[in-house]
Every structure is written in structure tokens, then in C-alpha cells.
Computed example of a mutant assay.
Amino acid sequence: MATKETKQRGRPRSFDRETALEQAVRSFWERGYEATSISDLTRAMGISAPSLYAAFGDKRALFGEVVAEYGRLYGGFLSRAVAEEPTARRGVERALREAAAEYTLPGRPRGCLVISAALNISPASAEVADSLREMRLSNVREIAGAIRADIASGELPPDTDAAALAAYTGAVIQGMSQQARDGAERTELEAIAELALKAWPRKAGGEVR
């Protein structure tokens, strides 16, 4: 007969949660949200459907954890670059170069999960698409904020369109992700990054920082 203490403890989990979560990240990264089924997830994670639901909740809740884990392990380079570099251009230059490397790293799915996971999503999963869109827009707003700070300091010309330049940069990053998924190599993405940087306005006097 089970004791009260045994009932409270329940059955011990028979799998490593962090390892299972990492496998879920790879599944959603490779296939996207809509195309990844519970069967795909349980097979990749090495657990049963009841164990998945007990440990992570439903597919939507698991995906929320996946996005957070992806950002922690792989996807935070743009925000770090913009925050750590002394100018917006330097931050974007670093972010584009890191994107070229990160999106083509051997042994990982290609491209960016946050950019590609909601492609071809159904109206029933609109909440997922909206949350990923907000994450992408948040990155664009971070870039725009850094550009505005540089305009205020004189680092960029006063007629620089911060919103348009930030949106352009976001579009380049999204395009690099898709190019990587289509098979582009790191050097090809680096060439795209170099061309994109030429669209940035020069400081008064022609100096670029």
C-alpha cells in the first residue's frame, strides 16, 4: 500500500527534461511550428505523449519554452551586438556577421527559428505567429532605438530615417535566414551583409564607424 509520502512524490520522471527540450528545439527549428506534430516531438524527445503533456503542457506551451531556450542558446546575438557595440552601425555589422555564421553552422538546423517557424501557419495557430512577429519587431525596434541615439549624438546624419533603416536591416536578416535554409553558405551570407552595410549613411565628412 502506497504511503502518503509516496503519493505526494509521484512517479519519478524517467527522462532528462533539458535534453528533451533541446530535441524539441531542433524539431521545431527544422520543421516549423505547424508541421511539427506531437508524434514528431515524442519521437525526437524520446518520451511518450503523456510524459510530454505532463512535463511541458500542450504543444503551444512546449513551443513557448522552445522559443525561450532557442533565444538563450542561439538567438540572442542581435540584441547583444546592438547593446554592446558603441554605435548602431557597429552593432548591426557584428550582428550580420554573426548571423552569417550562426545560420550556417554545421550540425544545426539552418536559419533562424524565430524567423522561419511560423511560415505557412494556419489561422488556428495565429497566436504563435503573432508572438514570433512581435519578437522580430522587437529586434527592429532595438535597432531603430540605437540609430536614433546615433542621430542625436551626431554619429549619423540628422536626416537619417531610423525606422526605415531598422526595417531594412530586419529584412536583410530575415532574408539571410531564408537563404541559409535554401543552402547558402557562410561566405555567401557574408557577402550579403557587406552589401547591406553600404546602405548605411555615412557620418558627416564621409567617415564610417
Rank of each mutant, 00 (worst) to 15 (best):
D58Q: 02
A166C: 06
E5M: 06
E18H: 07
R9F: 04
A81Y: 08
A152H: 10
A117K: 07
R13A: 12
M45H: 05
I115R: 10
P12R: 13
I192Q: 14
R9A: 15
A117H: 01
K198M: 12
L62D: 01
E127Y: 01
A126I: 09
E85C: 14
A2E: 05
R110M: 14
A196E: 07
Q179M: 13
F28H: 00
V172L: 02
A35L: 08
L165N: 14
A149H: 05
G75Y: 03
A117D: 00
W200T: 14
A101S: 06
R31W: 09
D182G: 02
E18K: 12
A2L: 15
P158C: 09
E207F: 10
G71S: 04
A180Q: 00
S51K: 06
V25F: 00
F56T: 12
K203V: 10
G57K: 05
S37C: 07
A124S: 11
S14M: 11
R72I: 01
A101E: 05
T169I: 04
S27C: 09
V140T: 11
A171W: 08
P106T: 00
N120M: 07
V172P: 00
T160V: 03
S37K: 01
K7P: 07
E155S: 14
R94P: 03
I38F: 08
R108E: 02
L137G: 12
D182N: 13
D161H: 06
L132V: 03
D161A: 05
I115M: 10
P50K: 03
E194H: 00
I121W: 09
F63S: 03
T42F: 03
A180T: 08
A100Y: 01
N139I: 07
G32A: 01
L137K: 02
I147H: 12
P86T: 02
G71Q: 13
L197V: 04
D159Q: 10
R89H: 15
V140K: 02
L195K: 14
M1C: 14
E93F: 01
I192A: 10
A88T: 12
G91Y: 06
T160Q: 08
P157K: 07
E102Q: 12
D58V: 01
A2D: 15
I121P: 03
A49P: 01
